[in-house]
Design a protein around this nucleic acid. Structure first.
Lengths: 200, 200, 200, 200
DNA sequence: GATGAATGAGCATTCATTCAT
DNA sequence: AATGAATGAATGCTCATTCAT
């Protein structure tokens, strides 16, 4: 895995260049947090994350003013990856397939990374930066959806928020529903439901 | 709302009929817990529940030996209601409509009662009683589903666990997705996806 | 075992005759408490005692205003038995043997009944009645000791409080020092120390 | 009194040298605990100890993961002192005098420090470290005893565990038996009992 | 009198966050 | 900048005691 923070100067003040060792620490923390949030969810103590990262708690707090902030930063990484993926798929031939692929992949990731699900479950505690990324994701996703709708592959009576919700729901439930096959079936139902033209 | 404990002698030992005042307290606690779990989730302190119920903490603990136990009791009430509803619907003419009605209602309820969602999200904390009720629900649900499948209204490649999962997911997400219309749209997609014959 | 309360009208108000069933309850409580204090010490919850006695907590409190009071009542029974024994032995031929027998028996009992030890360990929380019994025990014991000293079997430079202390100490330690033999050896040392004429 | 932690790097992990301020706090906590356990026994709330030490509860828990752990640490300090003393005495000319001196001193200390007594009274809560120190004490004590037995100053039919028990018992009782003279008399009896050749 | 439900102060322990080193 | 020690509010739970039934 390459540096998790490639596209930013750091989580707190995005404009002051961090010293090399500081950036290294931010990275270690993010990586540890990623891992531990992914497996244990938000419940994990900060001390544990610091321990795993091999730094002191103070260091964690220097870079992330709050546990929530760290959590969001972790998810941000994933959100960004999703944005990339959505953008990449938005040029595809088959607009329907592109949307369904995206949805499938998203769910598959979330099944493995509990924090993504947790994040999606969070309500109103987003800061601005976060909101921006979420907006980007929404935007990229909307493109995917509209192309699919325009192409007639997806019903017209739903909006992107609806699809997002359905996907989130599936994410939240999928990791409890052991096995890859089960997940696929869930995705299958959702996708078919989207494809279907509304029951008159 | 009528007494929450109509069909049981009390949460702990179903054997000795509770004194009238005790019954009243159990009810007050359950109601407070219901409300507060629904809005705040599992995180609320027991003291808060006791306060809202107008009883001492000790009273809560007398009836529910553990916070988890209280939580489960709260959900049990809902689960039982669901079982009733599922059973009632399983005699309906139109098997497909019955299933879809059940699903819709369930989601509508869960939107208002966040604890149901939380419960469904809980993993391994089931005690036996709990498991039994969940089993009953699963059973009743299965009847509903099979009848719908036999009648050709629902695809054959999914099992009741799948549907349960989809419904749960929708529940979890629906309350964040304000508005009755939005919820209906989600349910619509799910139901159409279930109705659809799998995309080859 | 016959009624534990033969020589009293009840622990609280020694002068109002108790109804038969009340006395029966006092007895049940005392017996349960005896057993449970003996094995678990003072730490046991009152509820547990009530449960074992087959009565409600309220009943326990009706007869014993306080946990301490119950505890003392239990020990009183034992203390009284000790008084009897001491008196019985004070007429014996061999005054030295009588004293040593008493001491041995006392320790042996205490090894089995933790509460006796606990009680002996209690400091200043005795009520009057209690003090009286303790006084009697002290008195009876003093007789035993003086006779042994007069007979030349026990050194003169110690008082009954000293012996009591030594015995208590041995009690407290003896139950941790598994085995009958070990206990005997401890008693042996103490008795020989008492017999010995002080090291000049 | 000098630093309580002279011979150790700290209670938890003997591996990393504690920061000066941390060391100071550990000391304050130990001293407060010592004092308060000595006067009130194990029953004192941790908060009280923290208050007296002038630190927050969290600090106590940082250094001692458990109330029991703190208690043991307190006693450990004393046990270690005893080990030292026993070792120092084991080279003395007069083996009998050495043993009796040790016993006397131990009791005199325990009279003032009730926690020692409490500790000795504890049953099965020994962790390994603790067991080791107790073992050392036993060992050092055994040397003292054997030398005295070989020299003919102490009877042969008892083992070090017996003597320990007798001493403990005396400790437990001695502080209730106010006055230096009384304590001396108790010790006198014990020592004479040990010296005595068993009564046939 | 008996019962056991209710009470609530009390306690051990955790953990996010701050701050001295 | 980094560290990790200190803090203390918060929480789940227990149990002696009181009181309505």
């Amino acid at each position: 895995m390459t540096s998790v923070t490639t596209s930013t100067n750091g989580p707190r003040e995005a404009h002051r260049p961090l010293r090399a060792d500081a950036r290294r620490n931010v990275d270690k923390v993010l990586r540890a947090a990623e891992e531990v949030f992914a497996t244990e969810g938000l419940a994990v103590p900060i001390d544990e994350i610091a321990r795993r990262a091999g730094v002191g708690v103070g260091t964690v707090y220097r870079h992330f003013p709050t546990k929530q902030a760290l959590f969001q930063a972790v998810v941000m990484v994933r959100l960004k990856a999703l944005v990339e993926r959505a953008k990449a798929l938005s040029g595809a031939e088959d607009a329907g397939a592109a949307l369904f692929t995206f949805v499938s992949e998203l769910v598959e990731v979330a099944v493995k990374k509990r924090d993504l699900t947790d994040e999606l479950a969070q309500e109103g505690l987003d800061d601005e930066v976060h909101a921006v990324v979420k907006g980007e994701l929404q935007g990229a996703f909307e493109v995917l959806l509209q192309r699919a709708q325009v192409g007639g592959c997806v019903r017209d009576d739903i909006c992107s928020a609806d699809v997002t919700a359905l996907v989130m729901g599936t994410c939240m439930v999928a990791d409890r529903h052991a096995g890859h096959d089960a997940t696929s079936r869930l995705i299958g139902v959702i996708c078919d439901g989207l494809r279907a033209h509304p029951h008159q």
